[in-house]
Design a binder for these strands. Structure first.
Lengths: 306, 306
DNA sequence: ATAGGTTTATAAGAATAGATTATTAATTTA
DNA sequence: TAAATTAATAATCTATTCTTATAAACCTAT
């Protein structure tokens, strides 16, 4: 015994012995042998320089100091166990906080049923949803402001890891009174040359879009853009998820060649996700096939839009 | 690692590493080597199933869970240390309570300066003094109502341990008008046969006293007895400490053969004393020689009176 | 009183965990 | 790009903490 380190094990032993009034019973309870108990108590007593348990071969009872120390030791043991099991609860995904940055279309259309499934499964986990532009999503992940992001790739960053989730196919959107609504067949991109093109941020980086040249109108806010379309001011290209399907005034047609905005899970590649976040991601990946089927989206990632 | 036991050492290591943001600095602080720190953190993380510290070879910082756990772990470590050092403080006799049962003569004459010395030395310790008859002193020790007793031996008990402190020599006491006051030479016991003997409880068990036969007067209360003596009602035998030296009306002479009431420290032999009580006893044993010299008593234990 | 059973203490050996040294791999800084 | 710094790993050694076996103390019951 070069230098004795008193540990919680000593306190735990003391508490159990005092509680049972017996070294043997305590040994039993603690799944150790009686000499081990004797040693632990001896070490504790030697370390503090106090006799804590008065013992004959027949009876064990705390001394006055032992009596005073009992509740203290009990609390220490309890607190320690509680702290560790809290930590384990976190690890077991029973509690935690998740914050997600996500683009609005996905947040509104795809996520609600997934969140429902998730919170049924992990009722102790709190979720904070930040909906934002693809660019802001990426930045928030980079800055570690959120656990992970969901969105398209703004500017590929070596800090980030992108896991494809699904392809959000681009469609041409216009008013029902527009002449394009005469058919619902695919439209070729070059057919759009004569049209008034209402631009959204979403298609900014897309190759095919660039062929159309600079547009006169720019609507970074999708809601505004939709309002413009409802006024039949022009046509626009939007990912399927961003198009309100139940809107009686609007119509849409596929584009040719088919192009998609690919939605990714965005994480930092030098960072470990919290178990809660991992659980969320698992749920998302499991649920997505069901959801995209329900919404008529493609799980495939045909032509990459970036 | 068959079954890993998480100890406070792990938490302490975690706290220090998180605080310094470095395994090496923590190793330094904890007087261990860096691999030992690595191992401890690894064990903790494996046990709870959570990554607590995000580390590259260059930087160490807590994960979200680690961040949450920090204050918890800090408190656990702090509480543990505080509890142990409290316990040690008790052992170091800085705090505590002592109750003593003691016969009045010793309490009044001998103890006050000793208590003064003691409380200077251990200001944190509270003292409760029960003065009582020799019989009650013994009983209180037997029943564990007090930490220890000081008095003569009433009835030797195997439960108790008697440590002789000093001898309180018996003297013959009488009024200054009594004819015995003509001299101050020792008086033989058998010279008392014709005298009116006023009995106190104190001499009850003494051999020489028994030769005098039954007395007419019994005064268990010494104060009453002294009052009787002041009225010159008779003579009595009292231990030196019980005789008020400054009383102008009373005189005393030694007895022959000399006999003493031996004052003992009385403890239970199956019980460990609290450190505070031990400190008190130490002080008593150290101080008694000075005090008995000051009072002109004998440190020797000549003829035992029991 | 004494014998038997039950309890804690002690001793010696084995098993386990923990620490150290030496080295590697990764990353920042100059 | 090289040097320096840092954490991880591997191998070895040390020290602690068990267990088994035994002794000593104490109560209970015959």
């Amino acid at each position: 015994m070069k230098y004795l380190n008193i540990t919680l094990r000593h306190l735990r032993t003391f508490v159990i012995v005092a509680r049972y009034g017996s070294f043997n019973k305590a040994a039993d309870e603690l799944s150790r042998t009686q000499p081990a108990i004797t040693l632990a108590i001896k070490q504790l007593e030697e370390f503090v320089g106090l006799k804590l348990l008065e013992r004959t071969t027949r009876r064990v009872m705390p001394t006055a100091e032992g009596e005073n120390f009992m509740p203290v030791a009990e609390r220490l043991v309890r607190d320690f166990d509680a702290a560790i099991s809290d930590l384990k609860a976190t690890a077991e995904r029973r509690v935690g906080n998740i914050s997600i940055a996500i683009v609005p279309s996905v947040a509104n259309q795809l996520l609600p049923p997934i969140i429902k499934t998730f919170s049924n499964h992990f009722p102790g986990i709190n979720l904070l949803l930040n909906d934002d532009t693809a660019r802001a999503v990426q930045q928030k992940v980079e800055r570690n402001e959120v656990d992970f992001g969901i969105g398209s790739i703004w500017q590929p960053s070596s800090l980030l890891k992108y896991t494809p989730l699904f392809a959000d196919k681009l469609e041409l959107v216009f008013h029902r009174d527009h002449y394009l609504s005469e058919s619902d067949k695919p439209v070729r991109w070059d057919a759009l040359h004569g049209e008034t093109f209402l631009d959204s941020g979403i298609t900014k980086n897309m190759l095919a879009r660039q062929a159309l040249g600079q547009s006169k109108f720019d609507f970074p806010n999708i809601t505004t853009l939709l309002a413009m379309l409802r006024s039949n001011l022009g046509v626009s290209v939007l990912p399927s998820l961003a198009i309100p399907k139940a809107d009686g005034e609007l119509r849409s047609r596929p584009l040719e060649p088919s192009e998609s905005r690919n939605i990714h899970l965005i994480t930092r590649n030098d960072w470990t996700l919290s178990p809660a976040a991992e659980a969320m991601i698992e749920t998302i990946i499991n649920e997505i096939p069901t959801q995209i089927k329900a919404l008529g989206l493609s799980p495939h990632h045909d032509i990459e839009a970036e």
